[in-house]
Structure formats: structure tokens, C-alpha cells
């Protein structure tokens, strides 16, 4: 057994729920303690949020001006420098973790297990391959450190009520200057976050235009739902890239997922397999999405969406 280190994801003030899901995964791995590390300019507040997660032993925050933004080239050497006491180093399989963790693995000279969906043993895990069409059981060597990302949709958030110790840590690492942060362009939105929303409405290319997609947004607002989309809808420019759900976009696990005009290509459905209830509306009765839908309706989305919206009052 050994200690587990989880790299916290945050936006400078708030801890991302993907970190909590890493804790849930870690509690399934035999361990001598689960620690979280926060890299920030002044991370005490974020660290105290992490300290409230049940099952966490200690939260470390490494405060440094260089940690103002999540740059893998800056954070990875700091993780590597503090890795010594840990047997497992986990990060979320969000774009933050996908960028950072392989760089950490590279610095440590170890392989990485991406997208842990099930813990079988301390070094044995299940993970999806081929867009979720083949689930492999992979066994990492126990005599090396294990670096892994945790598939957020496979885990619930950890319970609150923890009271882990919070400590400032200074890390001695050479930080490169070859990588500089520019800016983040995020569409301003007061809608629920796609990755954490309990309800998600997704649209496909069948919506036909950016303007028609407004129907989806209106219905989503009524249901308090987040909006997602297929690659085709994003490529067509109807919605921004961060709404893409699937193999190369976001993997989501809402309680309710409603698909409008989505045929059900494996590259998309791999992103929704963990949803509680899947509803599909498509005018093509042969669409593969009906094979996996809990509730299916063969109908034209252009009549269904307005009708649903008005009937939901």
C-alpha cells in the first residue's frame, strides 16, 4: 500500500467537481492516505474546499505566481518534484488532466492509465477503448508509481463533511519559461455546467442551423438543463466547441439526457452511456439511438420541442 496524490482542478477560486470524483475513485484503491495538492497563486481557500471532501487525509497547496494558470509545462515538474512519497498520482480526465498527467508520467518515466472507470485492484483497472466499444482490464506494474486519469462520469462526487489538514508546501522545481498563458475565451453562460448538470439536452445536425438551436436552449432553460451537441452540430457552427459530447468531447452522466435529432453514432453515445435515463426523439425510426434509449419517440423534433416546451408550462 502507499499514499495517493490527487492533483486538484480549479479555476483560481473554486474547486472543480472532477477533483471530488478523483477522491471517490481513490477511496476504492487500498491506500495509506489520500492527499490532494492545489497549485495556485494563493491556494489556501481552494485547499479548504478540498479539505471538506470525505476520505481526504491532507490537502497541500503550492503557492506560486507561476501557478496562476493551469499550464501543464509549469505544473508537471512540481508534481514530479513532490511525487516521491506517493504510489499513485491521479488527475481528472478533463482537458486539464488530459494535458497535465501524461506530462507528469513522462517526467517520472512511467506509463499512464487513462480514464479509469473501475478499480479492480490497487494496480488493476478497467478503462474504455475504441470509443467505449471495448473495455480493457489493464494491470500496471506494482513496482513503479502509477499515474492515471479518472473518468469523471464513472464516479459520483465524494461526500462532504471531511476535515483534512491543510498545509502550504514549497516545492523545489525548475519551472520553464517556454510556455506562456494567453487568455480563455469562454461563452458567458448562466446555464448549468454540461459536465455536472443533472439534466442535459443534446442536439444534432438535424437542428439545421444556429437559429434553430435556440429552440433547444429555450427548452433547456425551462428544464434547468445544460445543452450539449454532437460533433456534427459543433462542426456546422451551430454551437461552440465546449458543448461537444462524445469520444473526443465531454463524457457526461446526467440523471436525464434528451437527444433531439441524434442518430446515435458510437462516437457520440460513448459520451452518454452513464446517463440515468436516455430519451431520444428522432424522426427516423431506424436510428441506432433507439437501441439504447429508455424512452423513444419517433417524431419531428421541430414539432416536439415547441410542444414539449409549452406543455411543461
Amino acid at each position: 500500500m502507499g499514499r495517493i496524490l490527487i492533483i486538484a482542478e480549479h479555476d483560481g477560486s473554486t474547486l472543480n467537481s472532477s477533483t471530488s470524483k478523483c477522491v471517490s475513485c481513490a477511496t476504492g484503491i487500498e491506500n495509506d492516505g489520500i492527499d490532494i495538492v492545489v497549485f495556485a497563486t494563493s491556494g489556501a481557500d481552494i485547499a479548504s474546499q478540498a479539505a471538506g471532501l470525505a476520505g481526504v487525509a491532507k490537502v497541500l497547496h503550492v503557492d506560486n505566481e507561476a501557478n496562476a494558470k493551469p499550464l501543464a509545462a509549469i505544473i508537471a515538474p512540481q508534481v514530479a518534484a513532490m511525487a516521491e512519497p506517493y504510489s499513485h498520482i491521479l488527475g481528472p480526465s478533463t482537458t486539464f488532466g488530459k494535458d497535465l498527467m501524461p506530462r507528469v508520467a513522462g517526467l517520472l518515466g512511467v506509463g499512464q492509465v487513462s480514464d479509469i472507470m473501475t478499480v479492480i485492484g490497487p494496480y488493476t483497472f478497467q478503462r474504455p477503448t475504441y470509443a467505449g466499444e471495448a473495455i480493457i482490464t489493464v494491470e500496471a506494474s506494482a513496482d513503479r508509481k502509477l499515474v492515471a486519469t479518472v473518468r469523471s462520469a464513472s464516479y459520483k462526487t465524494a461526500a462532504s463533511g471531511g476535515s483534512a489538514a491543510v498545509e502550504a508546501l514549497s516545492v523545489d522545481a525548475n519551472l520553464p519559461t517556454h510556455t506562456r498563458y494567453g487568455e480563455l475565451k469562454a461563452a458567458a453562460s448562466d446555464r448549468p455546467d454540461l459536465q455536472t448538470a443533472s439534466r442535459v439536452i443534446c442536439g444534432g445536425r438535424a437542428l439545421g442551423s444556429k437559429e434553430n438551436f435556440d429552440m433547444v436552449f429555450k427548452l433547456a432553460d425551462k428544464l434547468g438543463a445544460a445543452v450539449g451537441a454532437t460533433r456534427a452540430a459543433v462542426d456546422a457552427g451551430y454551437v461552440p466547441n465546449e458543448t461537444q459530447v462524445g469520444q473526443t468531447g465531454k463524457i457526461i452522466a446526467p440523471e436525464l439526457y434528451i437527444a433531439f435529432g441524434i442518430s446515435g453514432a458510437i462516437q457520440h453515445v460513448t459520451g452518454i452511456k452513464d446517463a440515468g435515463t436516455i430519451v431520444a426523439v428522432n424522426k427516423d425510426a431506424e436510428a441506432p439511438i433507439f437501441e439504447m434509449a429508455d424512452i423513444g419517440l419517433v417524431a419531428d423534433l421541430f414539432t416536439v420541442i415547441p410542444e414539449l416546451e409549452s406543455k411543461l408550462g
Binding site: G111, A134, V138, E139, L297, A299, V304, L308
Partner: peptide, 24 residues
């Protein structure tokens, strides 16, 4: 990293079809 086994994914049960928006 030794691949011990490869399994097909768990299949979701096929659900119900409804006739119209009220049914939905």
C-alpha cells in the same frame, strides 16, 4: 501496462417507445 482482458461494453436495456409528446 499489461492488458489482462477485453470485454464488450455493458449494454443498456432497450426501453419503451411512446407515441407522442403527452406520452413522453
Amino acid at each position: 501496462l499489461k492488458i489482462v482482458k477485453t470485454d464488450p461494453p455493458a449494454q443498456r436495456q432497450k426501453g419503451v417507445m411512446v407515441e407522442d409528446v403527452d406520452g413522453l
